[in-house]
Design a protein around this nucleic acid. Sequence first.
DNA 1: CCGCAGAATGACAACGTTGTCATTCTGCCT
DNA 2: AGGCAGAATGACAACGTTGTCATTCTGCGG
Lengths: 336, 336
Amino acid sequence: MPRKSDLEPLSAKSATLHDVARAAGVSLITASRALTNPKLVSEKTIARVQAAVQATGYIPNLLAGSLKSNRSRLVGGLVPALSVAQFLPTLQSLTDVLDGAGYQLMLGQMRYDDSRQDALLNAMIGRRVDGIVVTGLIRSEAARRQLVRLGTPVIETWDLTDRPLDIVVGFSHIKVGSALAGYLLGKGYGRIGIATGDDHRAQLRREGFLATVGHNVPTAVVPAPSSLALGRSALGELLRQDPALRAVACSADQLAQGVIVEAQARGLRVPDDLAVCGFGNADFAAHIVPSLTTVHVDGASIGRLAGELIIARCSGETIRERVIDVGFEIVQRQSA
Amino acid sequence: MPRKSDLEPLSAKSATLHDVARAAGVSLITASRALTNPKLVSEKTIARVQAAVQATGYIPNLLAGSLKSNRSRLVGGLVPALSVAQFLPTLQSLTDVLDGAGYQLMLGQMRYDDSRQDALLNAMIGRRVDGIVVTGLIRSEAARRQLVRLGTPVIETWDLTDRPLDIVVGFSHIKVGSALAGYLLGKGYGRIGIATGDDHRAQLRREGFLATVGHNVPTAVVPAPSSLALGRSALGELLRQDPALRAVACSADQLAQGVIVEAQARGLRVPDDLAVCGFGNADFAAHIVPSLTTVHVDGASIGRLAGELIIARCSGETIRERVIDVGFEIVQRQSA
DNA sequence: CCGCAGAATGACAACGTTGTCATTCTGCCT
DNA sequence: AGGCAGAATGACAACGTTGTCATTCTGCGG
């Protein structure tokens, strides 16, 4: 049965500021000011313009405004993949801060692929974003030069470096790794293994870990993004490498949970037979049984700071700190 | 120690098409065509223009292009909150489809709040998005009229209705509820409880559930977003209402996992003492112990379809089906 | 060698807004 | 009463691109 309106023909141009001005009986530019810079306009006029806005159903064309004013109030956000739960609090608080200030977030997924990163950066620059928040560091030299040349504010996050492109908000993964190794060694665990995602930052944590334990250890590398299922198979792999394994450090809480499930399925008690620690302090970490010892990182703060810094830079403020270390914290619970 | 460049003064205007044209020795408009409509231009010229693009580091200003051509290649995406894992596959595949076609996603969080939804819709309309993908239905009448008037393609998702604003891609939550009730009844469970989030769609599922069991049941309502911790406390609440409870239907896998953890902590065997089922078929559902009986919804398909439909409509294609039911499936595992 | 179709290129205006500078109005001080 | 500061408003151009229509080339048949 053919329905009536399959497709409305992309119809009705919407009202422009011109229409509003005419309806209000003022000039175009006065209408503009009434809406964007009210203190330059008398209250009576503002009221009339606002009535005209209501009457015409006017919605400002931000494309035109951005083009002329050279400020898009658009911020680009790059994440490896949306399915990585780790970054969600960051994205969430970033979005909150941004749209509290009238900014919008444009999202792109890099898929752990540097060429995608370049393509996305170009797409965002093409839309003249006012700033860019990226998870991790921008590694492509070409992209770095490009961004520096344009003077676009860029906040690199979830990592740390002495030479940020612009500003970096994060923490040292190497330190996380060594702190975790120190923690486990301090607990007296001799035979420790690692289950780790194959992404860059997880590798940094592994480096830090190995540097502290001082020798190679049984290792299972799984493809990002981490999941419970991958944790289960990782433990199998680790036990194959060392059947007498006593502890496992995981690069994500999801992996750790999988390791715990697999351990329990094999009749191993956690932490008595096998200690397990994770990374990220996911929402479930405190509530599984046994509760998960893990590394807490304040992802929401990272997002909030990134948003505020972008907005500050767009308002022309000078930023002092170009390297902001939000630190991390080992949260001791039952599993290790 | 004061560093050198605290803030680069939002510098260096980037090259425009004008610069490219001059560098290539062609007119502005030829340069434009060489980049956007190459078949109108000779190969030799295209090559020269592309060389000029390289040389000048030109990045098209999509703001200007969108303004003139009235096509922004921007799609607005509205989700309740990013932290709701349920929608991530949808967002992920939506982003993938979109940027395969050169479109970008603008993200907004509604926070289960209709007024935020209106504000976000206005922000997106203001940026002249080519289409909008929203999680759930658009309930505000004013917003619906506005969008219809503008003729913006709108894909409502994760729900179903006879009268979509434009196009709806989803499934019936009421049917999910009754199917789940039917499943549990068929298994012979008499005393069934519900643990449910307080969001609109979870309530629909509850309605369907109650309609099928035919009477009220012990109920724990928890605030969205769902989590393992909330699941644990929900089971406590349900057992208070009926200590002889035999089964629990949860509105999210995260809740179900919490119910299982809490049951195990209380010495209840799942499913022998207490059957548990979830909703969403999260990545961990198949791999926890016991594995979780749940409802699978193809969120990735929803995102992919939404993206393709938006793109199709932007290309002027006529869409026949305005109501697309992707259905759902009860996945039987160990927990119920 | 002319004329002509079709390919290739160009000129101009326009998209809807805001920045800049100019003008008019209002109220107040001397 | 005259003049003047400051508030309020307006005119015009410009942001960087693309749509529309016009012009110039190229190759080929008669």
